[in-house]
Design a protein around this nucleic acid. Structure first.
Length: 587
DNA sequence: TAGAGTCGCGCG
DNA sequence: AAAGCGCGCGACTCTA
């Protein structure tokens, strides 16, 4: 199949705020063309015709650098969905798969590095686009020159990267789901997430009042009006509390971060500590929620950018706004959390299902460790943290009759399990468990004897980095790691594998819903969770649909020695109020 | 006054 | 040498 590169120029980076006004193409032979969709009517008509013709030709693969962007604007321009029956390519995704550790995957920089292709475009254009002005303000002749370049660059990258992707079966498969994920993600961004404007406003008012109250009280304690976020504040804090500096910032200054404040809070309580924690939490909460209001469209819907290949590990990320870090009601690190999730709501007439992978990180650690006893516990649906609990607290756990106490012990051992898998040594493990070194030492060696492979996960990943400069996941994705950072290998492997799982899951779930339950829509991935909306009049079908979705998300039996499972919650009012949702029993 | 770097903090 | 790591964003600070 022959291919053509395709690049759009738009008046804004955000689809719901701008439109495309021009596009350019380049053939495999290097012929470039530029079309304008603005200006006189004849030119517009000719360009539109060319655009229609280009997308009508399904025998011609379209190559883009970040295809979600170009596809999204083109769909908006033509008012229809375009990915059906098309062969699409994305050179940005190729670059990420082939060289995840590269400092960036920008079109210009890549072509400069790979081919010495000139990259002075911006310097000529900058004075026309400074101050956030649209690229439509750039003189056409100048703009055109660089559009030819970008189309040519994209074709250049395609010709350079595509053979390397094709050379490996794993790469082909990884690349294919990354490409398939683009229109899926585009649909989620377009659908968006609804906020409750009134709840936002009242919460902002409340938080601003609390913020200024905290500020006033801080002033009366410190003696002058100084923000707890200001550099100067750190000296006031240590002077007033009269405590030694235990942690410093990168620049060698006394740290005033949360972990320090929480320690001080326990050892030397003082009203100033509470005020600082309150001020920081409330002011941050207020500005975050203000930003949601600014970014929402006229229907109170947020359209975030969901980046599928931004993180070095292959994880997704989210911006404008970031919906993957909205505060929960309870935060163990912060006694004054802002329950920001309550401003997110299902659309009128809808409910939201939150489907999350149960303990996926520990399951993957166990999979990669190959520990037979732990694998068996997973397969039988048992508690993988129980053996550790019985080793570290044999008497305490068995003889305790207080469920709270038992849970606390079990949670400490869960922490210890993660710590050991990520390379913790005796002092750290003893600290996590709250045991003296001697007792912890004896029990840890028992533990290591019984589960030797969990403790050697980090070591083997480090060895792999030392030998090859990378680790690879079950799916064959390469994750390059600096050789002076070998210890990161195990983390990259786990995080990268979980990312691949949920990416593949989204492609499958989208296909399932499109075919079988087209009124359901995915809204957002949050690393180990998918949020799916369902109209209330379809609730009678929801249990069957969600059970099928769960199957699509967890069906990796040929890849993992451990089973994957999901748990489902349903939110009817807002994202802070969820209840358990039971799936159908497996047949 | 815009951009870059640091710090701190939310989520996973 | 090490319980690890990935993001995006706002406030602040300094520089050009």
């Amino acid at each position: 199949m022959s291919a053509v590169s395709y690049d759009t120029e738009t008046t804004n980076l955000s689809r719901h705020r701008g439109n495309m006004f021009s596009f350019s193409t380049c053939t495999e032979g290097g012929e470039t063309r530029v079309y304008r969709l603005d200006g006189n009517a004849v030119r517009v008509a000719i360009s539109r015709l060319a655009l229609e013709k280009l997308w009508a030709d399904r025998q011609m693969a379209k190559v883009m650098h970040n295809l979600k962007f170009d596809l999204g604007f083109t769909e908006k321009m033509l008012s229809r969905v375009l990915d059906t029956g098309q062969t699409l390519h994305d050179t940005h995704k190729m670059s990420h798969i082939l060289q995840n550790d590269h400092k960036g995957h920008g079109l210009k920089e890549l072509c400069w590095e790979l081919a010495g292709y000139p990259r002075d475009d911006e310097t000529a254009i900058h004075k026309y686009t400074a101050g956030g002005r649209s690229y439509q303000n750039v003189p056409e002749q100048l703009m055109e020159k660089y559009q030819h370049r970008d189309a040519e660059r994209t074709m250049l990258l395609y010709q350079f990267f595509w053979p390397k992707i094709q050379a490996s079966k794993d790469f082909r498969e990884i690349y294919q789901y990354e490409v398939d994920l683009q229109p899926v993600t585009l649909r989620m961004e377009n659908r968006g997430v609804m906020i409750d404007r009134n709840k936002c406003k009242s919460l902002i008012t409340e938080l601003q009042a609390k913020t200024s109250k905290a500020m006033d009280e801080i002033e009366s304690v410190v003696g002058e009006r100084v923000s707890p976020n200001a550099a100067a504040f750190r000296y006031h804090l240590y002077r007033i509390l009269d405590v030694p500096v235990t942690m410093k910032t990168k620049a060698g200054l006394p740290s005033t971060d949360q972990s320090i404040l929480m320690e001080m809070r326990l050892e030397r309580p003082h009203p100033l500590i509470e005020l600082v924690l309150q001020y920081r939490a409330y002011s941050r909460g207020a500005t975050m929620i203000e930003s949601y209001l600014e970014k929402a469209d006229t229907n109170d819907v947020l359209h975030p950018n969901i980046h599928t290949c931004q993180a070095i590990t292959g994880r997704e990320s989210c911006s404008d706004p970031n919906l993957q870090n909205v505060e929960k009601e309870i935060n163990l690190q912060n006694p004054y959390p802002v329950a920001a999730r309550k401003v997110f709501r299902p659309r009128p007439g809808y409910v939201n299902f939150h489907v999350d992978y149960a303990g996926i990180e520990m399951r993957l650690l166990i999979h990669y460790s190959g520990d037979e006893e732990l694998v068996k516990i997973c397969m039988e649906g048992g508690d993988v943290h129980l053996p550790a609990t019985l080793i570290f607290f044999p008497e305490e756990y068995s003889s305790s009759t207080d469920p709270k106490h038992k849970k606390a012990l079990r949670d400490q051992c869960k922490q210890a399990n993660f710590a050991i898998a990520y390379g913790a040594q005796l002092p750290k493990v003893a600290g996590v468990l709250g045991l003296d070194m001697h007792t912890a030492g004896k029990r840890l060696s028992q533990y290591r004897k019984r589960f030797p492979r969990l403790g050697s996960l980090m070591g083997s990943a480090m060895e792999e980095v030392a030998q090859t400069g990378k680790v690879f996941t079950t799916f064959g994705r390469n994750l390059y790691i600096p050789t002076d950072q070998k210890h990161m290998g195990i983390n990259y492997r786990i995080q990268g594998t979980a990312a691949e799982i949920i990416k593949r899951a989204q492609v499958r779930v989208h296909r399932y819903l499109e075919k079988n339950a087209s009124e359901f829509h995915m809204l957002l991935p949050i690393h180990d969770e998918l949020i799916i909306e369902c109209p209330r009049h379809s609730l009678k079908d929801a249990r069957e649909v969600l059970t099928a979705v769960a199957h699509e998300m967890t069906d990796f039996s040929n890849r993992f020695t451990v089973p994957l499972e999901v748990e489902v919650d349903v939110a009817t009012v807002d994202w802070a109020h969820k209840s358990k949702y039971k799936l159908l029993e497996a047949k």
